[in-house]
C-alpha cells in the first residue's frame, strides 16, 4: 500500500510529458498482469463489496437494536404517561391556556401558540415549504439536462388523447365537486383561529381541489387560470406578506411598541389580529405548493 501512493506522488511530480500513463491506466500496470488480471481483479473487487455490505448490514442492525433498546429502557424513567403533574405541565402551558384567549384572541389555543407566541418557528416552517418547492423546481423543471424525447412523445400523445376523449361524466362531477372543495378549504383557512384547522390543513384541501381539477380537465385548461406566473405571484406575495407582518410584530414586540392591531371579539371571524392574515398567507402558500408538487411531478412544468 505504502509503495503505491509513494509511486503515485512521484508520478505527479515527475516532469516528463506525454509519455506518462494516464490516471486510469495506471492500476493495470501496477497489478503486473495487464491482460488476464482484469477478471481476477473484478472478482476480488466483488468479494470485497460483498464483505463490505455484509459487515455494513450487521453493524447497522446491531446499532439499531442497541438504539431501540436504550430508548425503550429510558421510557420507563420518563414522567408517568398522562399524569397531571408531569414537568411539561408548567407555567408555560398555564399562560397559553388561561391567557391565550385574551392575549392572542384565538379560540384555538394551538393556532394562537404557533402563530403568535412561537411564531418564529412557524415562519421557519413556511420557509421549509418554500424551499422544498424551489428545490423540486430545480430538479424537475424541464431544461437541457432534463429532457427525454421518448417521454415528451408520450406526454404529447397523452395530451392528444386528453383533448379527444373528454370524459363527460368525470368532468361534470368535477365541475360540481371542485367549487365545494375549494369553498371548504377557504372555510377551514378562515376558521383556523376558531376551530381545528388553519392555514396548513385548509391550504392542503385547496391544493387537492386544484389537483383534482387539473387531473380531470388536463393541463391546458388549468393553465388558463393557474400557470407559472400566477404560482410565482401568489407564493411570493403571500410569503412576503407573511414575512413582513411577522417582522413588524417581532420588531414592535422586542422594542416594546404597541402594534396598533385590534384583537377583536374572540369567536368572531374577524378577530385575533394578525393570526387571520397569517393563516390566509399560509393557506395560499400551501395550496400553491401542493398543486405545484403535483404539476412538477406529473408534467415537469407548472
Amino acid at each position: 500500500m505504502k509503495r503505491e501512493w509513494l509511486s503515485r506522488f512521484v508520478s505527479w511530480v515527475e516532469t516528463g510529458s506525454a509519455a506518462q500513463p494516464s490516471a486510469n491506466a495506471r492500476p493495470e500496470k501496477r497489478s503486473g498482469a495487464p491482460a488476464g488480471g482484469g477478471a481476477v481483479k473484478d472478482a476480488r473487487k466483488k468479494d470485497r463489496y460483498r464483505l463490505f455490505f455484509n459487515t455494513y448490514y450487521t453493524v447497522a442492525v446491531i446499532v439499531c437494536l442497541t438504539l431501540v433498546s436504550v430508548l425503550i429502557y429510558t421510557v420507563f424513567h420518563l414522567p408517568f404517561f398522562g399524569a397531571e403533574n408531569s414537568p411539561a405541565a408548567n407555567e408555560v402551558v398555564k399562560r397559553y391556556v388561561e391567557k391565550g384567549l385574551d392575549e392572542t384572541g384565538a379560540v384555538n389555543i394551538v393556532a394562537g401558540m404557533i402563530l403568535d407566541y412561537r411564531a418564529f418557528d412557524t415562519f421557519g416552517e413556511s420557509s421549509v415549504l418554500f424551499l422544498a418547492v424551489t428545490s423540486v423546481m430545480i430538479l424537475l423543471l424541464r431544461d437541457e439536462n432534463n429532457i427525454d424525447p421518448q417521454e415528451d412523445l408520450a406526454s404529447a400523445h397523452e395530451m392528444v388523447i386528453e383533448m379527444d376523449n373528454q370524459d363527460l361524466i368525470l368532468q361534470k362531477v368535477i365541475k360540481l365537486v371542485v367549487p365545494c372543495i375549494l369553498l371548504f378549504g377557504i372555510y377551514v383557512v378562515l376558521n383556523g383561529h376558531l376551530s381545528p384547522g388553519g392555514g396548513f390543513s385548509g391550504g392542503a384541501i385547496m391544493g387537492a381541489g386544484l389537483i383534482v381539477y387539473s387531473a380531470s380537465y388536463g393541463s391546458v385548461s388549468i393553465n388558463r387560470f393557474f400557470n407559472m406566473k400566477t404560482f410565482r405571484a401568489l407564493t411570493t406575495s403571500a410569503l412576503l406578506c407573511y414575512a413582513l407582518s411577522k417582522a413588524y410584530s417581532f420588531f414592535t414586540g422586542a422594542n416594546g411598541l404597541p402594534t396598533g392591531i385590534p384583537l377583536g371579539t374572540p369567536g368572531a371571524i374577524l378577530s385575533s389580529g394578525l393570526i387571520l392574515v397569517l393563516d390566509i398567507c399560509v393557506g395560499l402558500v400551501v395550496a400553491c405548493t401542493m398543486y405545484g408538487f403535483y404539476a412538477l411531478f406529473a408534467r415537469g412544468e407548472l
Partner: peptide, 26 residues
C-alpha cells in the same frame, strides 16, 4: 425602544429570508 444594534441579528435573518423569497422573481 432598544438600542439600535439590538435589532441587528433579527434584521440579518429576516433580510436573508426576504431576499430568498424575492429571488425567484429575478
Amino acid at each position: 425602544m432598544l438600542p439600535w444594534h439590538y435589532n441587528i441579528p433579527f434584521f440579518c435573518i429576516f433580510l436573508c429570508m426576504t431576499a430568498g423569497i424575492l429571488m425567484p422573481l429575478l
